[in-house]
Amino acid sequence: MACSNPLRGIYLTYTIQGLILLAAALSILAGEYFLGLSATFAFLLTMTPSFMTRNLRLCLPWEINLLVAVSFYIHVMGHIGEYYVTLAPYYDKLAHLVASVTVGLIAFFLALLAEHQGDVRLTGPATALFILISTLAAGAVWEIYEFVVDQVFGTNLQLGNTDTMWDLVVDLVGGVIVAAFAAIVLARGEEHRFIRSFAEPSSGAEPPDIVGDPIDPARSR
Rank of each mutant, 00 (worst) to 15 (best):
W142S: 12
G175V: 05
D92C: 08
L157D: 13
H79I: 12
F108H: 11
S100H: 08
V70I: 15
R54P: 01
L136K: 10
S203C: 03
G18L: 00
Y91I: 04
E32R: 06
V211I: 09
T40C: 05
G18A: 02
I20E: 03
L21F: 00
N55M: 11
P89V: 13
I177M: 14
S134W: 03
Y145S: 14
K93M: 15
L60F: 06
V68Q: 09
H79F: 15
H75R: 08
H116C: 04
G118K: 05
R57D: 14
A23P: 02
D150S: 12
I184F: 13
T162G: 10
I144K: 09
N55Y: 11
D171I: 14
Y73E: 06
W62H: 12
P208G: 05
L56H: 07
S27V: 00
S38M: 04
A179R: 10
N156C: 04
R219W: 09
V176K: 09
Y145K: 14
K93H: 12
M1Y: 08
A205T: 14
P201D: 03
I195C: 09
A69V: 07
M52P: 00
I80E: 12
A218P: 01
T162I: 15
Y14H: 02
T86F: 13
G204A: 04
W142T: 15
V120N: 07
L136Q: 15
Y90T: 07
A99G: 10
S100C: 07
L172N: 09
R54I: 00
Q158N: 14
W166R: 05
M47Y: 03
M47C: 07
I210Y: 07
F34Y: 04
E63L: 05
T164F: 09
R221C: 06
F198M: 06
V120R: 15
P6W: 00
N156E: 13
E190Y: 12
T102C: 04
D167P: 11
D163K: 11
V76E: 13
L129M: 15
Y73M: 12
L19T: 02
N55R: 13
G154D: 11
I20H: 01
D92S: 10
L132K: 04
F198H: 11
I184Q: 14
G212R: 09
R193I: 12
F43A: 01
L67V: 05
N5K: 02
K93E: 11
T15C: 01
G154T: 09
L87A: 11
A25W: 14
L44V: 04
L159T: 10
A205W: 01
F108N: 05
I28E: 00
D216Q: 08
G104D: 06
R193W: 04
Y84C: 02
